[in-house]
Amino acid sequence: MENRFCCFLLAMLLLSSPLTLLASELDEFGVDTQIERREISEALIDSENFELTASGGIISIEDFGTNTVMVARLAYHISEDFFAEASYGKSEAGLSSAESLYGNIRFLSDDEREYRYYNLSIGYNALPGEAFISSGHAYNSALYLIAGAGITDFAGDEVFTINYGIGYRLLVSDWLALRVDSRDHVYSSELLGREKTVHNLEMLFGMSLFF
């Protein structure tokens, strides 16, 4: 008798529990509720807000010719509109016109000819969109404006440098992108006598990974 009473009580409890109610609600949707249970965890959703970029291109170092440059960048996408990006670039300056005209003079030693910059910039995806390649493929893309500040280490000196530019990112897949960047690096230099504002223009092609 006691056993039956227990069974009855348990059955009632089970029927009145919110779980069973929900199961019937879900049945209304025509959903199979007999699926094996699995925890949904946010950790299972891969968040891809970081972007690592490797670029190569050319930089025109004012008075010292145009040279190849390699750049590494790490960006954090704050929202769909903004991203913050740290960059490191490395190049080597050529000869100035005076040095190449009068073959035997050198303003800079080999070490001082190494050109390096570090900066932190904020980018704004001004024109997000889709690019259509042939009739069957559409790729997400964005034209972005970017500006920031940093340090240029060149000719034995470190100088405060502003950079600004425009770039284009084409997402080949969800995690792989192609990038084209053009930047202007502006600083004040007294290297060749009197003080002047230097503009070093840069053109880059790169590839980036989202992770």
Partner: peptide
Amino acid sequence: EGEWISIHKRKNRW
């Protein structure tokens, strides 16, 4: 309404 979807990855609020 009622259809099941699988969530694969996240980019900010998307």
